[in-house]
């Protein structure tokens, strides 16, 4: 069973590497959005610093959301997704594998690029470490919750905009916890509680969302 899941993971990653512009667009979007904020707010370093956790998190959240549409749509269009319904492995696990691949392609680059942007917004080293840690725990949650939205909008006109409306409200808890963790470090408090809750949320999402996504895929392919 793990071999076929691994094969699926490798296939998704190979496809993504063959078209690197998709992943790069997401990172580019993240960078541009963060770069635009100071233009709207003003260059005051202290002020930017205090806004940085929220800005970085909201930008990351929007970047993940933008990438969600492609999570299933290519496989949906060429019929691969329909084939997956026939595979003996549970659809939930297949979906989870695809979501994991999606996170490796879009979420992980965001985590890796975030220190650069954090430096631009004048975050200190310990805050940057916390930001990366929080994003590392948080972006998988974003991908997991997002996969439900991606599945529910399969084959719909204007699916991308609809995903935003369906998914963004559900992103409130990870946003609060993730940005809050960085904020806590910034104010000299411990971010332990934030990270534990974020971790708990990730575990919960890991077990709960694949089944919802699988149900949604079945419904939309029905």
């Amino acid at each position: 069973m793990f071999r076929s899941l691994f094969a699926l993971l490798r296939r998704d990653l190979t496809l993504a590497l063959r078209r690197p512009q998709d992943a790069l667009t997401v990172v580019g979007f993240f960078v541009v959005v963060v770069a635009l904020f100071p233009l709207g707010i003003g260059p005051d370093p202290e002020f930017l610093r205090s806004l940085a956790p929220g800005v970085l998190w909201v930008a990351a959240l929007l970047a993940v959301m933008l990438s969600l549409e492609r999570l299933f749509s290519d496989d949906y269009r060429d019929g691969t997704l329909e084939q997956m319904l026939l595979v003996p492995e549970p659809l939930g696990l297949l979906v989870l594998t695809k979501t994991f691949a999606h996170w490796l392609i879009t979420g992980l680059p965001l985590v890796l690029i975030s220190p650069l942007l954090a430096v631009q917004l004048n975050l200190r080293a310990d805050e940057i470490v916390m930001l990366m840690l929080a994003l590392l725990l948080g972006t998988p949650i974003l991908s997991l919750i997002g996969s439900i939205g991606a599945a529910l909008t399969l084959g719909l006109r204007g699916g991308g905009v609809l995903i935003a409306l369906l998914i963004l409200p559900l992103y409130a808890p990870p946003l609060i916890l993730g940005a809050g963790a960085v904020d806590a470090v910034m104010h000299g408090a411990s971010a332990q509680a934030h990270l534990s809750l974020l971790g708990a949320m990730m575990v919960f999402a890991l077990f709960a969302t694949p089944w919802a996504t699988a149900a949604a895929v079945r419904i939309m392919l029905d």
Binding site: A216, I219, D222
Partner: peptide, 12 residues
């Protein structure tokens, strides 16, 4: 399909 899909959303 609309009621099934939105049912999943409502439960989530």
């Amino acid at each position: 399909r609309a009621s099934n899909a939105s049912a999943v959303l409502a439960m989530v």
